[in-house]
């Protein structure tokens, strides 16, 4: 069974995959994130997250660096198998 809990992307540990659920924040930021492919239903894999500072994710076959503040605006459900 897959349990579905929504967390901000910034809370996703390295190596885990999340499914984008919602974007919060200003329109400008949402538009930029959406253009990069952060859209509900998209898989995001956390590549690097040390709990502080910026983090590194893989989305749609590219590596994207995000500030912690920006990552906190992306809500994902953790994929657990």
């Amino acid at each position: 069974m897959i349990r579905d809990t929504q967390v901000p992307l910034s809370a996703l540990p390295a190596g885990e995959v999340g499914l984008v659920r919602a974007l919060t924040g200003g329109r400008g930021l949402v538009a930029r994130l959406a253009a990069l492919g952060f859209i509900p239903g998209t898989e995001v894999m956390m590549l690097q997250n040390f709990g502080r500072g910026p983090l590194l994710v893989a989305v749609r076959n590219t590596r994207v660096a995000l500030g912690r503040g920006e990552a906190a605006r992306i809500w994902v459900s953790r994929k657990r198998g």
Binding site: R32, T62, E70
Partner: peptide
């Protein structure tokens, strides 16, 4: 005020 940090890391 702080600008958003969003940057693609090229291969």
């Amino acid at each position: 005020e702080r600008a958003a940090f969003i940057m693609e890391l090229p291969l």
